[in-house]
Amino acid sequence: MWSTIGQLGEFGLIERVTARFPGTDDVILGPGDDAAIVSAPDGRVVATTDVLVETRHFRREWSSAEDVGRKAAAQNIADIAAMGARPTALLVGFAAPPDVPVSWAEELAEGLRAECAFAGAAVVGGDTVSAGEITLAITALGDLEGRSAVRRDGALPGDVVAVAGSLGLSSAGFALLEAGVHGAADAGSDEADPGWLRCLGEHRRPRPPYADGPGAARLGARAMLDVSDGLVQDLGHVAQAGTVVIDLDSAAFVPEPELSEAVVLLHELGRTGRGALEHMLFGGEDHALAAAFPPEAELPPQWRVIGTVSAPGADGPRVAVDGASVSARGWEHFR
């Protein structure tokens, strides 16, 4: 029995991993040939790609291999949903040192499979290569099903801004991990299942509201994106693209109990940085969906109105909270 992927070899690893990936109705030809074939009944293909690098996007001491697989799939599929499309397929590039255990690669594949199954997509191919650190390059594909794509540049004055999904939990989970809290025992908790554990879970395995992307398109959303780098920073892209002002109402940001618990714990641990509102405004990697809708749109309960869109004044396109401009303090690579 081979214990590392170096011992198993490239083709043995590919055979072992791809056996875990079932097809779907969208897959005409899956892994095993020079390229996959995926149906595109709409006649257009929505495509996105993302790269995850060990220590930059995940740490093996913080997350299991299945966590990493689910997170890698989720953050790409969320981008497809944010265009108003239905996810169909993933292509996975996997680079790793030869001493990575075969079991780790298999668990990674299980995470990819499970998240794809949850979203209705399938892994259809990819590549493997030896490298000095684990790196995942994911390409996701989607189908618009005859709808117009929901881009970032469509917000109009008078629109309402709403969000579906959780805000701030992943950011708080990251702060807990940085504080050395990987589970209940690390915080000396007497509870078997304290609520703040959900924040760790949301960071390790984000749960984007995939179905609400196409749902928002059907509701008439004019602009949409997923919240990956912080709500204020991401909405800044919508404001700039649409040449509008987005004014958020702080009273609309009611933290979930688990987020409030995490903030209290962080304070007890001497981490007195962000409060709950700051995690919601500036934290990232929740992969919630934020969208601008016409004011007459009848939004279902999962869409929470958090602000409005107006025409820019002398200050130009911007994001404000309660009328006051705020600077983007989200994630940005190379800075």
Rank of each mutant, 00 (worst) to 15 (best):
L91C: 13
I5R: 02
D26Y: 08
A164Q: 09
A140P: 00
V319C: 06
A117C: 12
R205N: 15
L266C: 10
I138T: 04
S148M: 10
Q233S: 14
L169G: 02
H182E: 11
H267K: 09
A164Y: 06
R218Q: 11
T308Q: 05
A276P: 05
E296R: 15
V51L: 15
D286K: 04
A36Q: 02
V102Q: 02
W303K: 13
E285L: 05
P300I: 07
G220T: 10
L281W: 07
F282K: 02
R16L: 10
D190F: 10
W303L: 15
P300T: 14
D25C: 04
I246A: 12
F253Q: 05
L231Q: 08
Q302I: 04
A297E: 01
G125T: 05
L277N: 11
E202F: 08
H57T: 00
A291F: 14
V305M: 05
S166I: 12
W196P: 01
A73N: 03
G213L: 02
A276Y: 00
D153P: 01
E66T: 07
H237V: 03
P255E: 08
D67N: 12
V181F: 01
S170Y: 05
W104P: 04
V309E: 02
E332L: 15
V305R: 07
S260Q: 09
A292W: 03
L169T: 02
D34Y: 12
L91R: 06
H333E: 15
E268S: 14
D67R: 08
G30P: 06
I77M: 12
C199A: 05
L144N: 09
R205I: 07
G12C: 11
E115Q: 10
V45I: 14
E110K: 08
F58H: 02
A252K: 11
V45D: 06
V53P: 06
G23Q: 02
P300F: 12
L52F: 12
G12I: 07
D42Q: 13
I306L: 13
T243L: 13
G188N: 04
L289I: 04
L277T: 10
G323C: 10
F174C: 07
L269D: 01
R304I: 14
R86I: 07
S64A: 06
L289M: 05
I138Q: 05
H279L: 02
G270Q: 03
V68Y: 05
A35F: 15
V321G: 12
A109N: 04
